[in-house]
Every structure is written in C-alpha cells, then in structure tokens.
Amino acid sequence: MFKVTDKPIDAVRLQQELEGRGVGAVVCFEGRVRDHNDGRAVDGLSYQAYAELAEAEGTRIIEEARDKFAVEHIVCVHRIGDLALGDVAVWTGVSAGHRGAAFDACRYVIDEVKARVPIWKREHYVEGASEWLHP
C-alpha cells in the first residue's frame, strides 16, 4: 500500500498492517525533517504531490519490491503540506520471514520513491528564504 496524506503519520498504526504469522522480521524507515541541508539552516519543509500519479507510481514500486524480495507486507506513506522539524515526512515498513529481504525491500522502496514518485519538497530556511528542490 502506498498513500499520500496531509495528516501526521501514525507509525504505530501503520506497523499493525505488517503483521502476519509468517513474519520473522520487520524493518521500518522514517524520513524526518532535519534542521539543515547543503550547509543551510532549515526550519521546516513543505511538500506537494501529484497525488493520483504518486499513488499509482508508489504502488508500482511496491509491486516491484514484492517481485524482487521474499516479503510479507509493504506499507509506504508520504506526508504532504507543511512539516516542522522532527516531523516524519515518509514512512516505509516491510515485514518478511527473514531480515535480509526486509532490509533489502525497505531500501528499495524508499530509494525508488525518492527517485520516481511525483512529490516535491520546499525548504524553508532560517534566514527567511525558501525554495523548491529539483535535483
């Protein structure tokens, strides 16, 4: 499941979607808002998404991961809107029979989401300026 949400991410609730009798490993990744980037002091981020395509592409990535790795469940949620320092911007959780597949699938999903899913971040700098990141 891949979702875009404008609400705070509830990691405890999302972890419940990873449960299963065959699960021997759970790996979760949280991407959080930090106070600096590229040498500039940051005091918040804003995210926009093309939600319809983001959810389609995110779902495609999860299907790819399911084909590549022996996993039970994969959940990824990306938040949009205005986020403060420390807020969780993206949450990815994978459950599997064994830790190797769980780590590998979690890494695959977050890397591909960052590279492919139509979501953009705007950095707000402590000195007052802000700009969209288009790497």
Binding site: Y47, A49, V113, R116, P118, I119, W120, H134
Partner: peptide
Amino acid sequence: VVFLPPVSGG
C-alpha cells in the same frame, strides 16, 4: 496534461 519537474520527495 502535467509537466513534472525533477522530484524531491522523501
């Protein structure tokens, strides 16, 4: 139609 600038999620 949507023209998508380079993405920066995560």
